[in-house]
Computed example of a mutant assay.
Amino acid sequence: MRLLSLLLISLFGITVVSGFIVGGYGGGRSYSSSSSSEEHGHGHRPPRPRPPHRPRPPSPPPQRDPECEDGWMSFNRTAGRWCVKVFYGGGLAQYNAEELCQGQGATLTGLQTINERVQLANAGRLISNANGGGLAEIWLGATRRAGCNRRTDCTPLNTFQWTDGHTTGTAGMFWPGPEPNSVWFTNWGNQNCLELQVSAADGVAARHGYPHASLDDEHCQKDQARLYACGKLAK
C-alpha cells in the first residue's frame, strides 16, 4: 500500500512539472528560444547605400615648352625663349618698320648676344640677296639715351638702350670706327635709331666700309633701310 502511494505521488509530480513546462507561466503560449530578435526590430541593420561613383577628373595635359613659329629664329634668354625674324621691307623708316612688327604681334628686336647679332646679319644677307642683293641695313629696337646727344657725351656702349622690353645689357653691341657718330640734320635732328649693317658676301665690307654685323646710328626718318627684325616671346 505504501509502495502504491509513492508511485502515485511520483506520477502526479511528473504530470504537474510537464504541464508547467508546456503551459508556461499560465499564459497559454509556448516560449521558443529560437524566436528571432529581428521580429522585434532589433536585428542587423541593412547595409548603407554606397555613394554614386564619381569619375576622376581628367589629368591636365602635359606642359609644352614655348616654341617659336615656323620661320622664326629661336634664342634662349633670361625672360624666356625669344623669337626673331628678319623681314624685307624695300625701304622703310624706323617707325614704319615698328608698325609692321606690331602687325606680327612683335616689336623691333634688340641684340642680347654676339650670336644673335651675327645670326640676324647673316639672315639679312640671305634675304637681301634674294631681293636684288647689294648692301643692306636692318632696323633694330633701340633709341638714343637722353643726354647722349654728341659722341663725346657718352661711351659707345652707353649711348643707346634697347626698346623691346626683353633685351638687356650691351653684350650684343659692336660699334665700328667712329660710331655712334651722332650726325645732326637740321630737319631730322639727331640719329636716334639703330641699324645693323649687312654686307653682300663674306670678305666684302658693308656700307661705309664697316664690317658685316656691325652697328650704326641712323636718323629714324631715313627710309632706305631695306630690312627690319621683329622679336617676341615664344608661345
Rank of each mutant, 00 (worst) to 15 (best):
G27D: 13
S182R: 15
G110F: 04
A225P: 12
D217H: 14
P178H: 08
P60I: 04
T15M: 09
W139H: 04
S33N: 11
G105Y: 07
L120A: 00
S128G: 05
L227Y: 08
C220H: 14
S37Y: 05
T109I: 09
A121M: 11
A79D: 15
W184R: 08
G231V: 07
G19N: 14
G27A: 01
M73G: 09
Y88I: 04
S18W: 12
R125Q: 02
W162F: 05
S59G: 14
P52T: 11
R144D: 11
L111F: 01
W72Y: 09
D217P: 13
T186Q: 04
G177E: 14
W175K: 13
Q102V: 12
W139N: 05
G41E: 13
F174Y: 15
R64E: 15
A97I: 08
W72D: 09
W175G: 04
H166R: 15
L4C: 01
A136I: 12
V86L: 05
Q221Y: 07
P62N: 13
D217M: 09
Q112F: 00
S34E: 05
W175T: 04
L227V: 05
L120V: 01
W175M: 05
T159V: 05
G105K: 11
F12Y: 05
P51N: 07
V118S: 02
D153A: 14
S74N: 13
V86P: 07
L215W: 10
L140P: 06
T155Q: 14
A93Q: 08
V86I: 12
A213L: 12
R151V: 02
A79Y: 04
P47E: 02
S182N: 15
H42T: 10
G141K: 14
R145L: 07
W139C: 03
W162Q: 10
T113C: 00
E67H: 08
L126R: 15
R54A: 00
E67I: 03
L126Q: 13
N158T: 14
A142V: 11
N129L: 09
S199N: 04
S18V: 15
H212Y: 01
V183A: 03
G19P: 02
Q197F: 00
R77L: 02
V22F: 12
T170H: 11
C154E: 06
L196V: 01
R151M: 07
G165W: 08
A142I: 08
H42N: 02
W72G: 03
G209H: 05
I127H: 06
N96V: 02
G132I: 10
E98Y: 03
E137H: 14
R29F: 02
F185W: 13
P58M: 08
D217C: 10
S5M: 06
P58I: 06
L4I: 13
R145P: 07
W184Y: 13
G24T: 11
Q94R: 15
P180T: 05
H212F: 01
A205V: 02
Y88M: 05
E179C: 09
S30G: 09
E67S: 09
G169M: 08
I21W: 09
T168L: 13
N149F: 00
